[in-house]
């Protein structure tokens, strides 16, 4: 009897886990299914009359505005990622590698944006852009805002990586005649790189998926999430589902590829 009980409790966690994963995928499945919906006016309900269609997949830019919004999102994401990764990585290096006055205030300043709700970030940025800096809302205000909230996540990610590095490796390099510049280029940077790449990917996905802050500071600029949100009342074109699901596929394939390459690199015994 204790055997059956232990079987159940051993597998209980796994059973719940699988159920949770199904739950996590349910909306993705819906998004996927509705990308084949042969709907007339609104893609909210399944049209039982039309048979499933591939036409949205064949013509993903078919709905007006969807592809321009996607392009804007990619441009914003790329720019924000580039700048935030550089700025955040520099901060992370300073925090991990140096002892200086003001270090704990820096830590607080980096932590605060993560502890601030997005509406507050959006509202304050909108206020400063309009009342303070008198900037026109649009592409650049969105980029500025995205860089701001990505920096903290970059700092945290890169910092964790740097902290897990053995400082003795750098000492060994300088012991082996590498000057500080070479030590950084040959040892520190290559070893920190996985953390920096992870930070960049994180930044991109945060920026790409952001809606709340973007909605505050974008003016007439339309990003992909904003496009979806705005067209919700009028009916979202199935092309949005096609694009949304493709992003998911691309991301999953990238992660899997990275995993495979990573485990190859690390070698057998590592």
């Amino acid at each position: 009897m204790s055997r059956t009980r232990s079987w159940v409790s051993d597998h209980l966690a796994m059973i719940i886990a699988v159920a949770v994963l199904v739950y996590l995928f349910l909306p993705v499945l819906y998004t996927f299914v509705f990308s084949f919906n042969n709907y007339r006016r609104s893609n909210i309900t399944w049209n039982p009359e039309g048979s499933p269609t591939l036409k949205h997949w064949a013509n993903p830019c078919g709905a007006p505005g969807v592809c321009p919004a996607l392009v804007e999102s990619i441009k914003i994401g790329a720019l924000a990622t580039l700048v935030a990764t550089i700025l955040g990585t520099l901060i992370a290096f300073a925090l991990v590698r140096y002892v200086f006055r003001g270090r704990s205030s820096t830590n607080v300043l980096v932590f605060l944006p993560m502890a601030t709700p997005e509406v507050v970030l959006g509202a304050s940025l909108l206020t400063i852009f309009i009342q303070g800096f008198r900037m026109d809302l649009g592409f650049w205000t969105v980029v500025i805002a995205h860089i701001m909230f990505c920096i903290s996540f970059v700092v945290v990610t890169v910092k964790a990586r740097l902290q897990s590095l053995d400082p003795r490796l750098e000492e060994a390099a300088s012991d082996l005649y590498a000057n500080p510049r070479t030590t950084f280029l040959r040892i520190t940077f290559p070893l920190a790189l996985p953390g920096i790449v992870a930070a960049a990917l994180l930044s991109f996905s945060l920026s790409f998926d952001d809606f709340i802050i973007t909605n505050f500071v974008s003016g007439n600029e339309t990003t992909f999430p904003k496009f979806v949100y705005v067209s919700y009342t009028r009916g979202i074109p199935a092309q949005a589902n096609v694009i949304g699901f493709s992003m998911f596929l691309i991301a999953v394939l990238c992660v899997i590829a990275a995993q495979i390459i990573g485990s190859r690199r690390r070698g057998v015994a590592a």
Binding site: D166, E171, A172, S174, D175, A178
Partner: peptide, 16 residues
């Protein structure tokens, strides 16, 4: 360190 004709075998190897 890099200016010294001295090399170290570290207590914990410190291989790259």
């Amino acid at each position: 360190p890099h200016e010294r004709p001295v090399n170290t075998v570290f207590q914990s190897y410190a291989l790259f």
